Amino acid sequence: MDDTAALVRAAADGDAGAWKELYQRHSGLVWAVARAYLVNGSDAQDVCQTTWFRLAEHLTRIRDPDKVGAWLASTARHEALRVIRASGRATPVSDMGLLGVDIDERSPELLILEAEEAVADAERALVMWGAFEELSDRCRRLLRLLIASPRPTYQEIASGLGIAVGSIGPIRARCLQRLRTLVAERGVTGIRR
């Protein structure tokens, strides 16, 4: 099924395949919204589960089934903010744990060369992430959603962040320009425009 509204109706009628398709289409969006607000992975997972539970509760009452992605993004945002309020903390998300070097059993010379390249890449990534974390919360959240896979629609992003659809492009441009400036100040070059 390609029609989102038809998927929502089929899922509401108990079609497990339709529910699975909805989940596959929108789970990346829900996760990206949750992680844009929450540092703790288990909190983000809880928000995702709660968001999908809320959809199951309201599946027959969704006013505009074609926009279920925006509904999910908005619900994930509200749930994440609820978790933040309940815990009394809001901390920027750090992806430093994503940086790692895989070591295998090839020749020592090749491993040394690859290790040097990996260190250089890791150092560049550290600089990039350091610059990224200096961006405003708004910029970090928007850029994370724009790189989510599958990529959410602008309507879903707008709902997830509580901003107007028409402001996404200009905000994105300003955020990327600020990121380029921060990275250039640190001596990293070759960033695409």
Score class of each variant (00 low, 15 high):
residue 151 R to D: 04
residue 141 R to N: 11
residue 111 L to R: 14
residue 143 L to C: 05
residue 151 R to C: 08
residue 134 E to C: 06
residue 125 A to N: 03
residue 110 L to H: 11
residue 113 L to F: 01
residue 137 D to S: 05
residue 150 P to F: 02
residue 170 P to A: 05
residue 156 E to P: 07
residue 151 R to S: 15
residue 147 I to F: 00
residue 127 V to C: 10
residue 151 R to L: 00
residue 140 R to M: 01
residue 168 I to S: 08
residue 128 M to T: 09
residue 171 I to F: 06
residue 137 D to Q: 10
residue 160 G to K: 01
residue 128 M to N: 10
residue 156 E to A: 14
residue 166 G to D: 14
residue 166 G to C: 00
residue 142 L to D: 05
residue 147 I to G: 11
residue 161 L to E: 03
residue 124 R to L: 05
residue 125 A to M: 02
residue 154 Y to W: 07
residue 113 L to D: 15
residue 171 I to W: 14
residue 164 A to F: 02
residue 145 L to V: 03
residue 144 R to M: 11
residue 112 I to L: 12
residue 160 G to I: 13
residue 158 A to V: 12
residue 111 L to I: 14
residue 132 F to P: 00
residue 110 L to F: 00
residue 156 E to D: 10
residue 135 L to G: 09
residue 142 L to Y: 03
residue 143 L to H: 12
residue 112 I to P: 05
residue 110 L to P: 06
residue 165 V to A: 09
residue 143 L to D: 06
residue 124 R to P: 13
residue 170 P to R: 02
residue 150 P to Y: 04
residue 167 S to L: 11
residue 163 I to E: 13
residue 126 L to H: 08
residue 132 F to R: 00
residue 119 V to N: 04
residue 133 E to Q: 15
residue 119 V to G: 07
residue 164 A to K: 00
residue 155 Q to I: 03
residue 112 I to W: 00
